[in-house]
């Protein structure tokens, strides 16, 4: 190392003088030194980009679906069980109750919050159970994963969505636990908001998948 290197010390690194450093402790942000609200914003940013990533995952399935249906001579469209329309209704309803939950939290109505949260969870579970019932119905009709490419995609898309939605249900369970322990104050607002974003996204994704399966036959 050249001598000149050792002699040169950066002139602000050794302390607060020189104006280059602010004292994090004095900035009134106990959560850390980040600009106020950074972590709240980070959760939202993170969620937006996760949704983008999930979109790419399902876009890949979509393009495969379209390509595969286009070149297949053994494509027998799956007749969508009527039960699926009902489960769809459940999911849409859960989106509404999720929205109610979010609003109840920001306006501080604890009892209301608990009701809507419970309803959302119930509807979410209902959807997943309904989904299993849909698979069982298809199986009883003799439509399995490997029956033909259309049914392969049917199971694949619905199961992939189900796994993603299960993640949302787990988040709701965590929120419910926090509510149960009276820890769901405005400080946890971000958690609920981000979960709501995800939940609505799952709702939209479901409608998209349903339309794909229904319309692109």
């Amino acid at each position: 190392m050249a001598d000149t290197l050792a002699q040169h010390k950066p002139f602000i690194a050794d302390g607060g003088h020189g104006g280059g450093i602010i004292d994090a402790a004095g900035s009134g942000d106990p959560g850390g030194g980040h600009p106020h609200g950074a972590s709240r914003r980070a959760y939202r940013t993170g969620m937006w980009f996760s949704m983008l990533g999930i979109c790419m995952f399902f876009l890949a399935f979509t393009s495969s679906y379209i390509v595969r249906s286009g070149l297949s001579d053994d494509w027998v469209p799956v007749a969508i069980p009527s039960l699926m329309w009902w489960t769809t209704l459940l999911l849409i309803a859960s989106s509404l109750t999720m929205e109610k939950t979010r609003r109840a939290l920001s306006s501080g109505h604890r009892a209301e919050l608990n009701q809507w949260l419970g309803a959302t969870l119930l509807l979410g579970f209902g959807f997943l159970v309904g989904q299993v019932a849909v698979w069982r119905e298809l199986a009883s009709r003799g439509v399995f994963l490997t029956t033909n490419p259309s049914s392969s995609f049917f199971y694949l898309l619905t199961a992939s969505h189900g796994i993603h939605l299960l993640g949302g249900v787990l988040a709701l369970l965590y929120i419910a636990r926090e509510a149960w322990l009276y820890r769901l104050g405005p400080a946890k607002r971000t958690l609920v908001e981000v979960t709501a974003m995800y939940w609505h996204f799952m709702d939209g994704l479901w409608v998209y998948i349903l339309m794909l399966l229904w319309l692109w036959r």
């Binding site: 979109c55 876009l59 890949a60 595969r68 994963l145 490419p149």
Partner: peptide, 25 residues
């Protein structure tokens, strides 16, 4: 990475299904 790895993951799922579940993607 965010835009690309999701697609590879989807492709990997399809390939795995072809191998272990008997599908024909």
């Amino acid at each position: 990475g965010l835009l690309a790895f999701g697609v590879l993951l989807a492709a990997g799922v399809l390939l795995l299904m072809d191998r272990v579940a008997g599908t024909s993607f």
